[in-house]
Design a protein around this nucleic acid. Sequence first.
DNA 1: TAATTTATTGGAATCGATAACAATAAATAT
DNA 2: ATATTTATTGTTATCGATTCCAATAAATTA
Lengths: 359, 359
Amino acid sequence: MVSMLENSKKTSFEKVTIKEIAELAGVSRTTVSRVLSGSDFVNKNTRDRVLEIIEEKEYKPSIIAQSLRTNRTRTIGLVLADIENPFYSRVAKGVIDAAEAKNYNVILCNSNNDINLEERDIRTLTERGVDGFLLTTVELKMKTIENLRDKGFPFMLIDCKLDIPGVNYVVNDDYYGAELATEYLINLGHKKIFFLGNRKLLSLRERFRGFKDTLKRYEINNTGNFVPTKFIKTGGIYDIEGIIRYLLSRQENITAIFAGNDYLAVKSIEAINNNGLKVPEDISVIGYDNIKISSMIKVPLTTIRQPKYLLGKLAAEQLLEILENKSDKKARRVILRPELVTRQSCRRIGIQKLEERRC
Amino acid sequence: MVSMLENSKKTSFEKVTIKEIAELAGVSRTTVSRVLSGSDFVNKNTRDRVLEIIEEKEYKPSIIAQSLRTNRTRTIGLVLADIENPFYSRVAKGVIDAAEAKNYNVILCNSNNDINLEERDIRTLTERGVDGFLLTTVELKMKTIENLRDKGFPFMLIDCKLDIPGVNYVVNDDYYGAELATEYLINLGHKKIFFLGNRKLLSLRERFRGFKDTLKRYEINNTGNFVPTKFIKTGGIYDIEGIIRYLLSRQENITAIFAGNDYLAVKSIEAINNNGLKVPEDISVIGYDNIKISSMIKVPLTTIRQPKYLLGKLAAEQLLEILENKSDKKARRVILRPELVTRQSCRRIGIQKLEERRC
DNA sequence: TAATTTATTGGAATCGATAACAATAAATAT
DNA sequence: ATATTTATTGTTATCGATTCCAATAAATTA
């Protein structure tokens, strides 16, 4: 009764500490701590009494104080290249779910595809005392990563295959995915295929490699896949309209575009339409990522599906394993396989070119 | 030189503490702390010496220790209803940007539109010691909010207009937005309009109010806007296909659907198409939110645009102001105005009904 | 009965910072 | 020359937990 009265008087946010619990239970803080940490050697009666008071007072140990003492925060950092990009937000969901399942929290940074912000975010996170972090980097500096590794700070890369010792990652097999896409186009009869994408970005570099190698394997000569720099705006953003106009004007009879990601694909289709041509009738377009909108646009997009949720989930799980088990130095590298999703943005081209059908 | 040698020997992650800095500089920890906290009363020579050593040792104060002592973590929590929903991820970006601008970090929780997870998240965040948090709640329990308020824990609601004393929010004016949408449809000649959306959700409730009131204002009788429960799956998810089939079968000559959000609108259009009808020829559909895909789908969606980034940014800024300035108890309620975005999913219906054109 | 284990508990140091208060030396006023 | 201010710095307690080590009481063994 008295305690209820006291409670109702309490207006501002006051915290119960372990000291109070100890006093109320007539034991030492040590004992309360023991009760808290599960089972050590505490007498059953004592334990019950302490637990009762803990419950009554709704005592929760201060995570901050615990962190200071134990040097673990049960927090991991997540550096997202772009939270608004559905690819990354799905990855983030996987990360958050995996973290929460193990009673960890996630501090989120958004690097905005900016390598400088990315480094700032990494610094912020380490200073803030996260136990480890996950990095979805898009154009990473080798030095930064090596530095992190050498400091012994636990981290994993997401969707960034960097094969240097002591660096772990969970990635989609971009090379294989690009093979899938390219083979698909080739089987539809395409030979003049343009690869659209910023090859500075790690995953796009892999996709481009897969593309090139596949063409070679089929003995198809393909030249000039370079986007003139004048179409690349600050921050590596492409002027898709400009690129498409340029491609069409080159009169090279390009029959297909392999867009490095679905965003580029969607924009390309728009641009192609704006130039009076149609997809897939005049030009086939294949994307990469299978983001949600790719099935919803005017011409549902043929693309490569990547396990995104899994990417985040596995990465987080691997990181947490490392954290729970600091000694083990074994390499943790997971490579996930993408799949082809055929929709309607690519069509077969054959010996006789079908006449354009107009509605 | 010696120190460099030492550094290169250091393999694991070792932290420099204020104590070491103090010893190296030949001053007390207090003095170092003073230097750190900007300008107190420290002799310029001393300060310079300390700063030099801080720089040399790359010393960063432990945020955990600071937090414990000062009872401030420079961390805010963000409970997102669904990080994968582009609406919320844009909001999140606004929040993160505003927080980082003031040197705060964001701990992200994803409540998955689940009210139980939401409460768990709130608990997690308060226990973790965030300074305050932002809540994008979708179906909140009044009790939870009142409880938080009574405990004096700083928080703000995002896009959830809850007018009880001591509760602050930044919201879009859903009522007004719904007025805009409804008026637009009415001006196009629609009278039989169906409102599609879960009216348990706060913002949808507001939209429905705006919808109803506008119809009344135009003296239009509208009945039966209730979705039969059999089409509502667990978690409040709608079986849109079922609903649309049901609507069409009712033979009530519905000419327009006001979808409570763009997702519902997009799905509705798909469902309508699947039933052999066309948008907007047979049925007009207006959405709400103006998410990215709404302009990219087959029939670009007419919808209501909401300032999403601003929503998050302002909410975070308000919260931080509260945190920096604990004494001020003034109400912080911001109401943002949405706008109509006309695209192609609605058409005028007139006296003579145009014959269906087929391609 | 004395000696040794075992079970249970508490004291005090510690994690890395901040802050109230005290202390000293130098500068100024009387 | 003495008293009082001012500038600068240090001492120590504290935030809220954990943990090493010691202490006590009870139980067991010799």
